[in-house]
Design a protein around this nucleic acid. Structure first.
Length: 803
RNA sequence: GCGGAUAUGGCGGAAUUGGCAGACGCGCCAGACUUAGAAUCUGGUUCUUCGUGAGUGCAGGUUCAAGUCCUGUUAUCCGCACCA
């Protein structure tokens, strides 16, 4: 027997698979299809991380198993290659980002191939390829034509380090998600995508898909739907209405002041009337200077300025109330103005306490001078005229009816979700295919001129002015208007990294199509994605953005399904040996190449699947890796125990059927750790028996093949089984043969196990009891006692209750 | 603060419907092989004062029977965070 040498056999089989196009997706659309998708990586300079193989191996297992079960499987891979780190590296080392990207992709690809994934590489895509981003730009143009892409001046999150505008989602604790520099707000004209137009459907259609519950919850929370009302307040002595949004219109009688956001237009509109205008402006400037981080840090300490010279009128009781400015009211949510009900809102309560504003109780049940009373279940309305005595729900309905009749308010649904800031002032992204003409405004580039390719520039350095490096390319920027032929300027902002990843799963389906993002027939056959697995960190943004784009394409009739992904799961993170997140600074990073070199790809694959429950975080353990290698060594040596036999032996028949069932179900249910454990246990049984027949060996190899693909293929060949293992059919099990005919059950006395008896399947209850009473361990505990009750659960347990 | 999750041996983790807690792996202990070590193989391994004992973060409850169900509570992790 040869030594087990992963180095030799893994390369050998990877070459054979490649030469045979073993995992190429078929164009036979009569076959049942299965589309398995993993998140494509950003090809960073660091190379593959041990976190990558966890989800990749998981769906590789599913894909390999499904192929053996007769499915036409699409399991593709590609590169999400636009992005800041590449650009930053390019700037630092003066290399074109395209070259950097090529190099990184090459490295990633070699690493992935060395792990032996069954990707169909003929479907490979790269978001930075002009043939790919042609269609990213095309989708953008469709959004523009439908009015879902628009340009607006707005305060953006400005990263002081990257010198680039960030989406809200990219700001973490007030600092840039990528570089950690402080983020401040800055006014800039930006391209926006109207994702809010899809907010309702993005929530409702979650009912159509099979996502793990926590993903659905986080999608819903992010969209943040809330039901309430808009109410108009008149300003005293002015022909002006200040509209607020509230989820508690029932508390309208308790509104003792109003607050508007520092950026609210009212301030400038009435600068001549506002007695302390300069104070208001100073406050606004102070607020703008604060980074979001400082704003949230100071959560407890409320600040604000009263607007002198303006009063509002509470529309239900005619009371004159002051109007304040405070940065706890956000311009970007609701109307940028609120009615403050300090008795029943914690933030208003804090503010009122600090500035000595009146607190009027309108829902009884708490002590509002001590704390805001926010319980909406138990309270009854008081001090509220016609609402008195109602509970909160009834009062809400009543007041909305009243407001609508009087024409001073109406029911309103709001979302936390905001439109998507789609501009980046960067070089390494998709150019936005729009020109600006003084006469015609924003004009789309004709579709036949796509892709609009990135020009070669001298420097990728972003500028302090906030312009993209493309702005310096005057030859490129100055162009003619496709509409009137006059002079025009190209858009110099580029798209965010999210753009390319919002539709990549559609391009995999037909990646070389020059006439459409994918052919109609291919889309009909392959969509939706049957199973999409990715990290929890992408369950809000990427998932939401791609669902939005997909729904938009669905509305255009381009894709046949309303939802892109039928099923979505998430894997847990892989932590360092010390239980902390892997990072260079902590010195606990494990490089997958080292594991492949030292132990082999099959060991890496097996270990990452055996490490623990798939959806939970798990700590790396080098000893655990060794254990998996030991398992594969023992699998290799099974050759020595091989005996003839073309059907399962009596001894192992039940076990074989049980294991086929367990492994099949466990793989499909993402319970790889217990599936592998079952194979280890079976292996131990073969060793205990000191033999395994050819039929058993064959099944064992097939079951293990999706996990440890190379070693099983090699053993298959050595044993002289027909053809290649990857072409073999997945084994079936017979349910009736998974059931043992003779079983051992526990006998408990007063709930404690005192003995065991062996019985036949479905043995008569009286006979089981008789056996149990004679069992030595049990007998001891029955002596001198009265049997009070006996509970027999068929084929499971017998509990005897004695006194 | 809000939302989600987790808590089981020395460690990673198992345990369909409530029905033998600790599968499988690591580590450790003993033995075999070896001049010796490594590797490998065999056996053992929750704790224990060894009993008719205790035991799934903690305190109660339901049940013949609870890691699993109910009430309360603590700790840790993740996400969101002034969203009116």
């Amino acid at each position: 027997m040869k030594e087990y040498s992963p180095k030799d056999i893994e390369k050998k089989w990877q070459d054979i698979w490649e030469k045979n196009e073993a995992f190429k997706t078929s164009d036979d659309y009569t076959m049942p299809k299965y589309y398995a998708l993993v998140e494509f990586p950003y090809p960073s300079g660091q190379g593959l991380h041990v976190g990558h193989p966890r989800p990749y191996t998981a769906l590789d297992i599913i894909s390999r198993k499904r192929r053996m079960q007769g499915y036409n499987v699409l399991f593709p891979m590609g590169w999400d290659a636009f992005g800041l780190p590449t650009e930053n590296y390019a700037i630092k080392n003066k290399i074109h980002p395209r070259i950097v990207t090529e190099r990184n992709v090459e490295r990633f690809k070699n690493q992935l191939k060395a792990i032996g994934y069954s990707f169909d590489w003929s479907k490979e895509i790269n978001t930075t390829d002009p043939n790919y981003y042609k269609w990213t730009q095309w989708i953008f143009l469709q959004l523009f034509k439908k009015g879902l892409a628009y340009k607006t001046k707005m305060p953006i999150n400005w990263c002081t380090g990257c010198k680039v505008g960030l989406a809200n989602e990219e700001v973490v604790n007030g600092v840039c998600e990528r570089c950690g520099s402080p983020v401040v707000r800055k006014e800039k004209t930006q391209w926006m995508l109207k994702i809010t137009a899809y907010a309702d459907r993005l929530i409702k259609d979650l009912d159509l898909v099979d996502y793990v519950e926590k993903i659905k919850v986080s999608q819903k929370n992010w969209i943040g739907r809330s039901e309430g009302a808009e109410v108009d307040f008149k300003l005293k002595g002015l022909d002006e209405t200040l509209t607020v949004y509230t989820t508690r219109p029932d508390t309208l009688f308790g509104a003792t002041y109003m607050v508007i956001s520092p950026e609210h237009p009212l301030i400038d509109k009435y600068k001549d009337i506002i007695e302390n205008y300069s104070e208001a402006v100073a406050y606004r400037e102070e607020a703008a200077k604060k980074s979001d981080f400082e704003r949230t840090e100071l959560v407890k300490e409320k600040t604000g300025v009263e607007i002198k010279g303006i009063k509002a009128i509470n529309p239900v009781n005619g009371n004159e109330i002051p109007v304040w400015i405070s940065d706890y009211v956000l311009m970007s949510y609701g109307t940028g103005a609120i009615m403050a009900v300090p008795a029943h809102d914690e933030r208003d309560w804090d503010f009122a306490k600090k500035f000595g504003l009146p607190i009027i109780e309108v829902v009884a049940g708490g002590s509002v001078q001590e704390a805001a009373f926010t319980d909406i279940k138990t309270g009854k309305l008081v001090n509220s005229d016609f609402l008195n005595g109602l509970d909160v729900t009834a009062a809400k309905a009543e007041i909305i009816k009243f407001l609508e009749e009087k024409g001073i308010g109406h029911k309103k649904v709001n979302f936390k979700l905001r439109d998507w800031v789609f501009s980046r002032q960067r070089y390494w992204g998709e150019p936005i295919p729009i020109v600006h003409c003084d006469k015609c405004g924003y004009v789309p580039i004709p579709e036949d001129q796509l892709p609009l390719e990135l020009p070669e520039v001298e420097s990728y350095m972003p500028t302090d002015t906030g312009e993209s490096p493309l702005a310096a390319m005057t030859d490129w920027v100055n162009t003619t208007c496709p509409c009137c032929g006059g002079p025009a300027k190209r858009e110099t902002d580029t798209m965010p990294q999210w753009a390319g990843s919002s539709w990549y799963f559609l391009r995999y389906i037909d990646p070389h199509n020059n006439d459409a993002l994918a052919s109609k027939e291919a889309l009909e056959y392959w969509t939706p994605v049957d199973w999409y697995n990715g990290g929890m960190e992408h369950t809000t943004l990427h998932l939401l953005y791609s669902r939005f784009w997909h729904k938009f394409l669905y509305d255009l009739g381009i894709v046949p399904t309303a939802e892109p992904y039928k099923k979505r799961t998430s894997h847990g993170m892989i932590l360092g040996e010390n239980g902390e997140k892997m990072s260079k600074s902590r010195g606990n990073v494990v490089n997958p190449d080292d594991i492949v070199n030292e132990f082999g790809a099959d060991t890496l694959r097996t270990y990452e699947m055996f490490i623990g429950a798939f959806d939970m975080a798990a700590s790396w353990s080098q000893n655990g890796v060794k254990g998996c290698r030991r398992f594969l060594d023992r699998v290799w040596k099974l050759q020595e125990l091989l005996v003839p036999g073309d059907s399962y032996s009596k001894e192992f028949e039940t076990k074989m059927h049980q294991t086929i069932k367990k492994v099949s179900n466990d793989y499909e249910g993402l319970k790889f750790n217990t599936g592998i454990a079952a194979l280890m246990a079976l292996l131990n049984d073969f060793y205990a028996a000191k033999h395994i027949n050819r039929a058993e060996f064959k099944t064992f190899l097939i079951l293990l093949n999706p996990v440890a693909s190379h070693i099983t293929e090699e053993l298959w060949e050595i044993a002289g089984f027909d053809g290649y293992l990857y072409q073999t059919k997945w084994p079936e099990y017979d349910e009736s043969k998974t059931i043992e005919q003779s079983i051992t059950i526990a006998v408990t006395v007063n709930g404690k196990v005192r003995g065991k008896v062996t019985i036949n399947l479905d043995e008569d209850e009286e006979s089981v009891k008789a056996k149990a009473h004679e069992e030595a361990g049990v007998k001891k505990f029955l002596e001198g006692k009265n049997i009070f009750k006996e509970i027999y659960v068929k084929n499971k347990i017998l509990n005897i209750v004695v006194k």
